[in-house]
Nucleic acid binder design. Structure first.
Lengths: 129, 129, 129, 129
DNA sequence: GTGGTCTAGACCACA
DNA sequence: GTGGTCTAGACCACT
């Protein structure tokens, strides 16, 4: 799976990495149960600090996207049960994005169509960026 | 319009303020053409520094949500035709949120329903948080 | 002659007005010796404060573009002899603009062509904005 | 690279600093990819506040002249392909300067020669002021 | 180490 | 009155 990071952008690297992995899981390029590269391996491949990768993995674990086994390394979580402090923050962010569209005069149909398209693209395992 | 800020959270105050105003515009609690409080006034009301409010206003101006008139202060932009560097970043963020839902096993219907509900709540001018 | 002002933009109104008049002189929509509207008249036409117009006229007089006669009002200066503190500042600003082009990788031919086109457009008395 | 600021003039310091850096890039005193001093370092060297330097850097970043890397600080952008909201404003300013020349009776040849000279001076990496 | 954010208080340009 | 700029000093996030 290709991971692209922008070192000069405003977003912290560990967040970019976390987001890329979430996108990978959603598009099933990363299957449930599939193992992730080790922290050191991935750090070397991406040319970044191991602590940065570790931070991304820890975040993903806290948010319920992956599981970390000290012996087997990290792997994508299979079934998704409860996820810590998920819905509130997520809905809040989604509401903000929708508000931005509304504030710019976006119609309901236009918004729903965009959401549906993005969903389909991800669900078919194609790459969005 | 009530504005609530979390001074202890991780999100910068100027961003929270910017977001609250965007939500206000989307929900029409702030009408197009309506004047916003002056930088100093709002800073005093919220108990924050004027430069912080200034930063939020400047950001909103750059993103096309408000206009700043040297004589009358800031006011909500009426017709939001021009949207500087909008769609790319916005779609990217939306795709990420949808991916988070997908990665947690959310169904398409569930997602679309959530989006629609959020849209309706905002469009009816009710408060979301 | 049409004068368009942007009340919400970043540039001060008196400067916008000064610039519009300079453009008018350059394109000969305002002929040498031609009288300008009185301060009060122009202020009323444009819907701005008379002091703002006065400031623009004073600036134009200081820079040698117009002459102000207390009895006859303001009129475009006919022959252009010496102009106070002109060349230094003007060359400096021109150098900065050219530098911006260079810093963005603009070629010499591209730059010269742009300058020539702008010159011709103005010299033919057509409107540029 | 020497940077001279006029603390008593009308131009904001952050703008003067921004302009000096643009001139430096255009004249290749600052090479593409070259690192700029850190915000604090430059502020101390110039005897100004760090936030003022920060504002100049942020502006240069938004206008595509430099990149800011959280790890290595700011550096001159190598390939300047993307130029956010560049041409319109730039042409407008250039047209105004040319109009000032025209309104003072400057001939076409004189203007073109001046532009060419300024271009060559910058392109040869010599200092203009 | 880096840049990003925030504060309290000041002065200035504009209208 | 408005926003724009600047200062000195502080704390935080990221790497």
């Amino acid at each position: 799976m290709l991971i692209s990071l922008d070192m000069t952008g405003d977003d912290p690297i560990y967040l970019q990495l976390r987001n890329e992995i979430v996108l990978g899981i959603a598009s099933r390029r990363l299957q449930g149960g599939e193992g992730l590269p080790s922290v050191r391996q991935l750090a070397e491949d991406l040319g970044i600090n191991a602590m940065t990768v570790n931070k991304a993995y820890t975040l993903l674990k806290e948010q319920g996207f992956i599981e970390i086994d000290r012996r087997q390394g990290a792997k994508v979580r299979v079934s998704t049960e409860a996820a810590p402090h998920f819905p509130g923050r997520w809905q809040q962010q989604l509401a903000l994005l929708i508000a931005e569209g509304l504030a710019r005069g976006m119609e309901k149909g236009e918004l729903m169509k965009t959401c549906e398209q993005l969903f389909e693209i991800l669900n078919q395992g194609e790459k969005t960026q």
